[in-house]
């Protein structure tokens, strides 16, 4: 190839430099307008496949019958259940600990466990029962360990505890049964296994949230989460009835398994806690929907993101009730305790 230019004199050099400067400037303008274009494109991008439940996350304000008194955040995370003891002391099991608060949320005590607890119950004398995956740890009111009861089955995964005057019931999500113990930890019987003679339909437990409570009417209540119902049993295991219906509407339970938690008001009505659409509601003693304590919009982190963006199995809520009928909501995502009282 022949040389394209004969001599690079000063004028040519200046020419060259100015041209390349202009080119660079042009490149800069170009890339910035490209960035601006991509930025605006980003903002209009959509997801045609979004799973949109935002409509269901709004609650009719007329249905909300409670208001918040106070709230506090548990110093320990990985909270799982809440139970209210004598003197309205608030017990929260959080990872390897049980944290005890006074009703205002001031930390009062802490009990260390041998492992993470999934369930919790407090007797009227202050004895604390903590259900770990495969055993129950019993502490006196001062936090001294009194006993350890091994779970009766290899598959056990204890997720609910209820303590009465002479009985302790442990809900076992792994074995799908309620174990009946006496106060010394002796196994007395089993409740709720599929059994035609007792009319028991059997527990459907897709995720570890089976709970149990002793109602003032003398029957057990168990949340059969896979059937979206709360069921009643005698201590001997006789099925006595159930309530609850499957719907995303506010008066029912939705998702794979709800309600994941419940508690009993002093007058025998029910407080239920749900996951997926995190909400707390009141049902009367026969299971008719009454009102909402807090809807999904009250738990934005819980509703948006479960526990992190990927771990919804560990999201949701749990509830407890104190002697005055105030409701304590435990947010499993934010580790917050909210105290609610009826609206004046």
């Amino acid at each position: 190839m022949k040389p394209e230019f004969k001599l690079l004199d000063r004028r040519e050099f200046v020419n060259f430099v100015s041209r390349s400067a202009a080119l660079l400037g042009l490149a800069k303008v170009g890339s910035e307008s490209a960035t601006a274009a991509t930025t605006s494109a980003e903002q209009t991008s959509t997801n045609a496949f979004a799973y949109d439940v935002s409509r269901l996350q709004k609650t009719d304000p007329k249905l909300i019958a409670y208001e918040e008194v106070t709230r506090w955040r548990s110093p320990r995370t990985s909270v799982r259940q809440i139970a209210i003891g004598p003197g309205d002391q608030v017990h929260v099991c959080a990872g390897h600990y049980i944290s005890v608060f006074n009703p205002q949320g001031q930390p009062a005590a802490e009990v260390a466990l041998t492992g993470p607890a999934d369930s919790l119950a407090v007797a009227s004398d202050g004895t604390i029962y903590a259900g770990l995956r495969d055993h129950v740890e019993v502490f006196d009111a001062k936090g001294q360990r009194q006993a350890v009861w091994a779970a009766p089955d290899r598959k056990s995964w204890l997720t609910g505890l209820a303590v009465g005057k002479q009985d302790v019931f442990a809900a076992d999500s792994g074995k799908r049964v309620i174990w009946h113990f006496d106060l010394a930890g002796k196994l007395l019987g089993r409740v709720g296994e599929k059994n035609a003679s007792q009319n028991a339909p059997g527990f459907i437990v897709p995720s570890p949230f089976l709970q149990v409570a002793i109602h003032a009417d003398g029957l057990l209540r168990v949340n059969n989460i896979g059937r979206h119902q709360v069921e009643a049993y005698t201590f001997a295991g006789e099925f006595e009835g159930a309530w609850g219906r499957i719907t995303t509407a506010i008066d029912g339970f939705c998702g794979c398994c709800n309600p994941i938690g419940f508690a009993l008001l002093p007058d025998g009505r029910f407080v239920t806690a749900e996951k997926g659409l995190p909400r707390v509601k009141i049902y009367n003693h026969v299971g008719e929907f009454e009102s909402v304590v807090a809807g999904a919009e009250s738990f934005p982190e819980n509703a948006r993101a479960c526990n992190g963006l990927n771990d919804c199995a560990h999201g949701g809520l749990d509830v407890g009730v104190d002697g005055q009928g105030r409701i304590y909501i435990l947010d499993l995502v934010t580790s917050e305790v909210r105290v609610m009282k009826p609206r004046a």
Binding site: E42, Q43, S45, T46, N47, A50, Y51, D52, S54, R304, A305, G308, L309
Partner: peptide
């Protein structure tokens, strides 16, 4: 602040970053 649609990639990326 811009409100992105439900579960759009941007909204999700921002939510992830917010953690």
């Amino acid at each position: 602040p811009v409100v992105y649609g439900v579960m759009t990639p941007e909204a999700l990326a921002l939510a992830r970053m917010a953690e």
